[in-house]
Design a protein around this nucleic acid. Structure first.
Lengths: 131, 131
DNA sequence: CTATAGCCGACTTATTAAGTAGGAAATAGG
DNA sequence: CCTATTTCCTACTTAATAAGTCGGCTATAG
């Protein structure tokens, strides 16, 4: 279960947006609240905006906010944006007797995906997600 | 679900040993069967042997074999050897509202570990493992 | 005594992750 | 208009890890 710093930052940033009252939240505030390197965060927020997950407003009183209600954004949404899922990570086609191993990865991947697509940021901020 | 090449090679190598008839299997044979770079494989097998998972014999007619029956060696056994689990990957202590995220990683890690400690190489070679 | 095969540490290279730099372009308020 | 704020954007540098290589030594069966 490897999660890159970038991904964790992205999730934490979105959580901040989900927890904030309506209206734009400046990157600076998120960076401070979550101890994320400012410039790096810019970079990540930019990516999330381009993907249409969040909206933004420049200038004073500007900032970022969620494009959809927190209850309609899942952890998987964020993760797939920042990690990108272009190629189906070469886990298929093991030689000979090792072939069944591929099936195991498949099972793991599936469970992981299921869980991540079921948990929304509304649940995160209210600490309510099913076990 | 990131799995390093090293780890995959290790699992495939052990699978080969589990599937082979009793007696030493030379590294060369494993390398060929699984398309693993020979020198790299040496390296990995050495590590598995030092950990006591496999035994070895030098010289002609030498090779490697499992230290225990395939039914008593789990995928997790191999993985923990080649990846090492020294530090409990910093997933605790998220600031403020992001705290619940840690719980999610915990759930994922737990499920993953459970699955990997339940599947043995006997099951892999016979393609029988519970879903 | 020779061919086979494992043993071993150190070393090189490739890839990815993490974080930085330097500015340009909006926009709210005075 | 002018200024402070804040996002936007590309590219770059550096650090860490993974992947794989090298050279040579040691054991042992026949």
């Amino acid at each position: 279960m490897r999660i890159s710093a970038r991904t964790q930052y992205a999730l934490r940033a979105v959580t901040e947006l989900a927890a904030a009252p309506p209206g734009p939240v400046p990157a600076e505030k998120i960076a401070t609240a979550q101890s994320i390197p400012r410039r790096f965060l810019d970079n990540i927020l930019l990516q999330l905006r381009r993907a249409g997950l969040i909206h933004s407003q420049r200038g004073p009183e500007g900032g970022y906010w969620l494009a959809r209600p927190a209850g309609e954004i899942t952890l998987a949404d964020v993760i797939t944006i920042v990690e990108g899922h272009p190629e189906q990570a070469e886990h298929g086609g093991y030689p000979g007797v090792a072939q069944p191993l591929a099936e195991v990865w498949s099972m793991l991947r599936e469970h992981e995906e299921t869980l991540l697509t079921e948990i929304t940021f509304a649940q995160i901020v209210s600490s309510r997600f099913s076990a």
